[in-house]
Amino acid sequence: MGRSLKKGPFVDESLYLRVERLNQQSKREPLKTWARRCTIVPEFIGHTFKVHNGRAFLDVFVTEDMVGHKLGEFSHTRLFRGHTNKKEGIEGGEKGS
């Protein structure tokens, strides 16, 4: 399933640089990003990212356990409110919005 080891993990360059800059100043501030495809590397630990899910930026606080996953895995893109209840009419149906 995986990606070729030769290439190493995919990390979004500009996002990585932004994190590095913060790390050098040992500052912590939320980073707004669209880079859902970016792998979480150890340098990201402790930072909060605002990861775009197509509609809004969701806060993702990176912990050690998340290393190796992609940022997008923690910013859910679908909203499921349950199935339509036939008796009550259209109560709570409709995905997304």
């Binding site: 356990d65 923690f74 859910h76």
Partner: peptide, 12 residues
């Protein structure tokens, strides 16, 4: 459990 705790898509 780790996947669940991190609120990852796979955990969900």
């Amino acid at each position: 459990q780790r996947l669940k705790d991190t609120r990852s898509y796979r955990g969900e």
